[in-house]
Design a protein around this nucleic acid. Structure first.
Lengths: 221, 221
DNA sequence: ACTACGGTTGAATCCTGAA
DNA sequence: GTTCAGGATTCAACCGTAG
């Protein structure tokens, strides 16, 4: 299996070709299973539609569990809208240890009068076996500023990914992300001397991710 | 229906005698469906055990929906451990608008090496119909300090309850809490000139709650 | 009135040893 | 084997007391 590459392919197909017990961490920000488009945004990203089903989820979780080594961790982002469905799909295979709250610095949009403003996303923290976390005890509320979604409409802070990778892996271990989008997982891995394997179904985001990764080739860190 | 009283009775039984569309807000902190005891505690509260079932939940939610007026809100506390079960039971009857995060000032105990430290609890925010929230837009992360569990082992901050009651009711409306414990809901209602109806199955906590409520009788606020 | 300091806490979970 | 009871444990925040 070639390391440190982003494959332009549906991750469900790609994972079929991966050996079981072959990666050290799953860290992924999959589609949340809700139709999503921000119209009030300067740089309009491609509209994400036809995305209100979660049919892919059970197979994705099962495959994730299969390719992950024993005594390893897996993190799955999700929103509160479908947290019940995600949690139940995940706990068929993994032990759900916690649900982390990524607290953003700013609030999102949505119902202005009848609802509370969304200020977080969930990260379901799970285990296969029982590896410990590195670097002492951390809270299950993680405050990281949003970066501005330059590379992808649902881009997550690099710091946040770096933090999770450091908590759950050692150097030179392999991180898998089936929905790598703008390549944040790959970038964090490169900076932290971890190996990555990524999938991204969109050729455009593959290209963006590749450019991001190459752009730090000659940067000291 | 007599107002501003805490009834020493199982709320499932009590609610059978309540008229439909008779209260203006449900705000309750039910058992989370997990066995727990803090051993590192000087004033040991009674151990909560044999509490790992949620058989009461569907009927409680159904009755809650029945007694609530149209165009009103309901809040149900829960932890991440069973948030999937709570959410699915609730959304059979209510519209789940959001899942609020009560961020505490301190972290809890638990797995010290293999898990993130628990620092929040969930509050599932739901509607029957579509009343708006008062006082402008608030975040779905609510930061309130723990008060010290003087009156009940799982006591919640009075500020937090006051905040939610103000967001979702007007003066003289009726708030129902089926698991009122140390009486925080009643206390907040009294201070905010709302009416309350409470149930508490334990005679001891009924007494404690009553004393708390009476103790502010002559206090100016 | 303010600071310093020591004591106590936490909607847990793991582990060990007894039954 | 299997279940169950009880002890040990982090660490930042808070409280009371002493100075």
């Amino acid at each position: 299996m070639e390391l440190n590459k982003i494959h332009n392919i549906d991750c469900l197909d790609f994972m079929k070709g991966m050996a079981e017990n072959s990666v050290d961490l799953i860290l992924t920000d999959p589609p949340y299973g809700m139709s999503f488009q921000s119209n009030y945004r300067q740089v309009k990203h491609e509209k994400i539609v036809n995305d209100t089903n979660l049919e892919w989820l059970p197979e994705f979780i099962e495959s994730s569990h299969r390719i992950l080594k024993d005594d390893r961790h897996a993190y799955f982002f999700c929103s509160f809208h479908n947290v019940d469905i995600f949690k139940q799909a995940i706990q068929k295979h993994f032990e759900v240890k916690n649900i982390l709250v990524w607290a953003k610095n700013n609030t999102g949009m949505g119902d202005l009068e009848g609802d509370y403003a969304p200020q977080y996303e969930f990260i379901i923290y799970t285990r296969k076996g029982n590896r410990k976390l590195n670097d002492g005890r951390a809270s299950n509320i993680l405050s990281y500023n949003r970066t501005g979604n330059i590379n992808h409409p649902t881009e997550k802070p690099l710091d946040l990914f770096s933090f999770l990778i450091r908590k759950s892996t050692q150097e030179s271990e392999i991180v898998f992300d089936g929905f790598i989008g703008g390549g944040t997982t790959a970038l964090a891995c490169k900076m932290l001397k971890r190996n990555y394997i990524g999938c991204e179904i969109s050729p455009e985001y593959c290209k963006i991710a590749e450019e991001r990764i190459n752009s730090i080739s000659n940067t000291l860190f």
